[in-house]
């Protein structure tokens, strides 16, 4: 069943990314640690969204895009103020 293989691939990928994020945090990369951690977290989120949540179709993507845009507004405009 190729579907199961896809899910297993996602599962193994997620575990690998987890190992990577824990491992990288023990290296001292200055400010880059946070960036790397967040990038890996975003990677995990994309894996889950695409493989587990089947993020397809216009409407679900619209909902995700809207929330993403609004989060950018919230973070961006708050941080210019402080």
């Amino acid at each position: 069943m190729s579907e199961l293989r896809k899910l297993t691939f996602g599962y193994v990928g997620l575990l690998a990314l987890l190992a990577l994020t824990v491992g990288s945090s023990f290296l001292d990369l200055g400010g880059f640690n946070v960036t790397i951690n967040l990038a890996i977290a975003a990677g995990k989120a994309i894996l889950i969204a695409m493989l587990f949540m089947h993020l397809t179709g216009t409407l679900p993507r619209l909902a995700v895009a809207a929330a993403g845009l609004w989060l950018v507004i919230l973070f961006g405009l708050t941080l210019i103020g402080s």
Partner: peptide, 20 residues
């Protein structure tokens, strides 16, 4: 959603934020 800071012009937020 882009205008909430106009409630805070005199709140002590930066003048730059106020102008935006």
């Amino acid at each position: 959603f882009l205008v909430w800071g106009h409630h805070m012009f005199v709140s002590g937020q930066s003048a730059y934020a106020g102008v935006v």
